[in-house]
Design a protein around this nucleic acid. Structure first.
Length: 240
DNA sequence: ATGATTTGACCCAC
DNA sequence: GTGGGTCAAATCAT
């Protein structure tokens, strides 16, 4: 009944910060499951306004086993809430606070994942399944929106999806003590199309994709890319 | 106090 | 019986 569309979203240093906003909708996580044969759990989101405005849009987000920099986002249904925030500031609702248990649950794999997501390129492949409207704008804003300072927890604990990536990195790398918005021009907070147009030229995108395609062939290389590298890399792409 | 997230349990289709 | 999707109580953050 519901329209369903799947997008493969590759997250990189630029887009990972934008993608989320691209969606513009406000999502609430309502579940997570380990999927058979998949390394990473699948997260389930639904529109925050589901009850108040009868918006039954939901989406599933799952990291690709093959390439952890790719997130497969499956959107089901379409938003009827009209609460998208396209072109504007992200809704107050935002961030996942998965690091809230900011204890000592340091897990090496997670830091690797973070970096992976961090340095990845981005690609959005919309492979319409049985959808009627192909709107390339389904992203867990809930997850990505969290660009606030998490002073106390640098590394995430528990599950790790891109939300953690952002949450964790936003503080130390992006803006220690700087308002997040200064790093995210309005143009980037638009939906995906806008993001790509304003932030990445097509050639850039192609480059990123190919680069990551090659990386995909040797995942271990990525895995070896430690957090330390990221910290020390003077060229770490935040200079827009 | 309120709202969002986590997580085990539950339900259902195969 | 198994796996995927959802529910809901507990937990956490603001």
């Amino acid at each position: 009944m519901m329209a369903r569309r799947t997008e493969q979203v590759r997250v990189n240093c630029e887009n990972l910060l934008e993608g989320p906003h691209g969606d513009g909708y406000s999502w609430g996580k309502y579940g997570q499951k380990d999927i058979l044969g998949a390394k990473y759990p699948r997260s389930y989101y639904r529109c925050t306004y589901r009850n108040t405005q009868n918006c039954w849009a939901t989406k599933q987000v799952q990291r690709s086993d093959e390439d952890p920099t790719i997130f497969e986002v499956t959107c089901r249904g379409s938003h009827t809430c009209g609460n998208d925030n396209h072109g504007g500031v992200p809704p107050p609702a935002s961030p996942e606070k998965q690091e809230r248990k900011s204890n000592n649950n340091y897990q090496p794999l997670q830091s690797q994942d973070i970096v992976l997501g961090f340095r990845a390129g981005l690609r959005v492949e919309t492979e319409g399944l049985d959808d009627k409207e192909m709107v390339p704008s389904c992203f867990p804003s809930t997850s990505f929106g969290g660009l606030k300072n998490e002073n106390n927890s640098f590394l995430p604990s528990g599950e790790l999806d891109y939300s953690n990536i952002f949450g964790s990195f936003s503080s130390p790398f992006i803006s220690p003590g700087t308002p997040e918005l200064s790093y995210f021009p309005a143009s980037q907070i638009n939906d995906f199309g806008d993001v790509l147009n304003t932030q990445c030229s097509e050639s850039d995108l192609t480059e990123l994709v190919s680069a990551n395609t090659s990386a995909t062939n040797s995942p271990m290389v990525d895995l070896d890319f430690s957090l330390d590298h990221a910290e020390l890399d003077p060229n770490f792409p935040f200079d827009t």
